[in-house]
Amino acid sequence: MINLSNIQHFSVGDGDGIRTTVFLKGCNLRCPWCHNPENLTADPVCLHYKNLGKTETVGKRVSVEDIIPELLEDKDFYETSGGGVTISGGEPMLQAEEIFTLASTLKIHGISVFVDTAGSVPYDFFKVTNPVLDGYLFDFKSADSEKYKKIGGNLTLVKDNMARLMADGIPFKVRIPLIPDFNTDPDSVHAMCENLCEVGISKVDLIPFHRLGTSKYEAMGQSYPYKDTPPLTDEELRCIKSVYEEYFSVKTE
């Protein structure tokens, strides 16, 4: 059984082409800027949107076979666009066995499968999923091991996992969330670039911070720590991007 949060069709920011994103519940990290707070816990979460008068419960355990038909619905779009399915979360790698089953079935149908991970899990988990995936979208959040520790992660493990994926010839795309006051100051940016270079990375995607998740926190009766943080200005973004461009080929979301 897979611990499912939500399935989103026509995803255009989760890898190549038009994709269907499968969001899984449960995460081992606690990033305060997270825009999917409903997926942090493994248990179901109730969201109550006051202004819409709408309440929904997120999280159910379903069998892999149950969700396959929905993922096949958009097969024509995957084919035309070079897309497929992306498994995201939460931290989907916590359900590596289920991902294996899901991706194996999709592979039979000729569908590309990516996993969107923060990568702070033992490499053994990757070993389970590597054979059936077309690649990973791999988050890299900081070059500071203290900062990683604060959000529940492990910098060494993350870097080690990237290196091992490289060694094993598994494609992955490094994605960097640009979080104000966390990893966007010049020192942080340079350090992250150096770190990634050491691993041998040549391409990165930058994902600028946004606060569209605010209403989810409210619906969960919580306050979003970043609700008053404005998005990066174009100028700030340009500055950060130019540094990354000294090291890598860069795409911005």
Partner: peptide, 21 residues
Amino acid sequence: AMFTDAKRGKLLALIKTYFKK
């Protein structure tokens, strides 16, 4: 945003599939 260089190809794929169907 769907009309930026990065995303326009995906929109085109959507339209082509729509017509194919």
